[in-house]
Structures are given as C-alpha cells and as structure tokens.
C-alpha cells in the first residue's frame, strides 16, 4: 500500500515515518515535498510527520497548512484516503480545519519527551483496529504544544461519535489529571474526523514500532492501517447508523 510522507520545511520525523512504512512494514513509500502537489489516486496513506514546520513560528502548524502539498491533502481527505497526522502533523490538521479544536502550549510550558500510557478510546477506526477498546498501550511523546483544546460542544460530539482514539492514562487505564502530561482537555491524545479517515495524535507510534527500541505498541497502529487498506477489516458501520 502506497504511502506519501509530506516534508514541510522543518519536518523532522519524516525519516522516521518513512522508515517504519518502508522498512518495517515493507510497503512502497515516497516523500512529497511541500512545494509539490500530488494526485490522491497515487497514494493510499498520507502521513503528516512531526517536527517544527516553519519553526512553529506564529503557532504550531499555522503556516504549513497553506503549502501546495496541503491542497492535495485536502482533496485526498475528501476522497476518503487515510491521513495520519503525528505531533506537528496533528497540529497542522487542526490548523487546517481537517480536525476540530486547537493546540496550546503544554500547561507547565515545558517540552515533554518521555513515554506515556494511552487508553485506547476506540478500536473502530482504520488506524486502531488491531488494538482492543480500553486497552492500555505505551508510546513516547515529544512536544511543547500538545495541550488540546476544544469547546465543550465539540468535545461532547467527539465522545458521542466515538472519535477519541487515545486518552492519556495511567498504567492501569485510569484517566487522571496526573496522567495528563500537557493539560489536554479530557486527556485527549488523538482524535478522528467525522468520516474516520483522518487521525491526528500527539504520541509517536513510529518511535515504538521495532523490537530494538524496546516497545512495539506503535507498530500495531501501522499494521491496523495495512489491515484496513488491504480490506481485511471493516470499520464504523454499526456505530454511525
């Protein structure tokens, strides 16, 4: 399954995402430079990687959304292609309006780089079908602006539509304030769009997808995508009727 990794000026997890899809999952992968447009037909999965696009100047992700490659991303999203935004990629998706809400500086104003526990909010998605709902997984975070904000109505709707993919939790799956590394509303770590083909998440699954890194919890996210793209799982029907 063909994957495009978008390279914005300042992207720095592009190589890591490329490595996982290409070398770990053995799938065809290409970089798409932000100045290029592409055809939605050419790819099954589009990854917006982490980093500091445009130095995160003004607001994280605010400037990247105007790049030519993003025009193609909008079109691909509309056509139902899978879009995965990780960290800075999530911030770009929010700024671009492909996902609701906004990102603020972490509440303690510090950059956080460490493992977090995540409770899987929904396994009913192209990205998480190989997890169990309610399962607790571990992934690294590395961000200074991951404090997710949305108004109460939006959050209510995300919950109602089963669109919260990951919550920051403790090891046992309790969603507590102590387990919230950045102050995100309702401990939200990742969300889907209404059509469930766009995922934004702050934790880095690509940094925990190999045995040698001591954690493979992130690999299942990429394997879920593959399962879905290869037609082995169906998602969403029951819930949205």
């Amino acid at each position: 399954m063909r994957c495009a990794v978008i390279v914005f000026p300042g992207s720095n997890c592009d190589v890591d995402c490329f490595h996982v899809w290409k070398d770990v999952l053995g799938q065809p992968t290409e970089y798409v430079f932000h100045k290029e447009r592409f055809s939605a037909e050419d790819f099954d999965l589009i990854i917006l990687p982490g980093g500091f696009s445009y130095g995160d100047y003004l607001r994280a992700g605010a400037i990247a959304r105007f790049s030519p490659a993003m025009d193609s991303v909008y079109k691909a999203a509309e056509k139902g292609k899978l879009i995965l935004g990780i960290c800075n990629g999530f911030q770009i998706l929010l700024e671009a309006g492909l996902l609701p809400g906004a990102m603020m500086k972490n509440r303690d104003l510090k950059f956080h780089c460490h493992d977090v526990y995540l409770k899987v909010g929904t396994a009913d998605s192209p990205f998480t079908n190989m997890y169990l709902p309610g399962e607790v997984v571990k992934m690294p975070i590395a961000h200074g602006e991951g404090n997710y904000y949305a108004d109460a109505d939006t959050i209510e709707r995300l919950k109602r539509e089963d669109r919260i993919v990951f919550y920051y939790s403790d090891e046992k799956g309790n969603i507590t304030d102590e387990a919230n590394p950045n102050g995100s509303a309702e401990n939200i770590a990742g969300i889907l769009n209404e059509e469930r083909n766009v995922l934004g998440m702050m934790p880095h699954p690509e940094r925990c997808a190999e045995e040698i890194l001591g954690n493979t919890d992130g690999k299942r996210l990429f394997m879920s995508i593959l399962e879905y793209l290869e037609g082995r799982v169906k998602i969403g029907k029951s819930r949205r009727s």
């Binding site: 003004l58 605010a62 105007f66 609701p100 809400g101 906004a102 603020m104 904000y149 108004d151």
Partner: peptide, 8 residues
C-alpha cells in the same frame, strides 16, 4: 486567515 486561530 492566518494570524489568529479562531478556536482559541
């Protein structure tokens, strides 16, 4: 369009 994020 750019300078402010209307959500926040």
């Amino acid at each position: 369009k750019l300078l402010a994020n209307p959500v926040l």
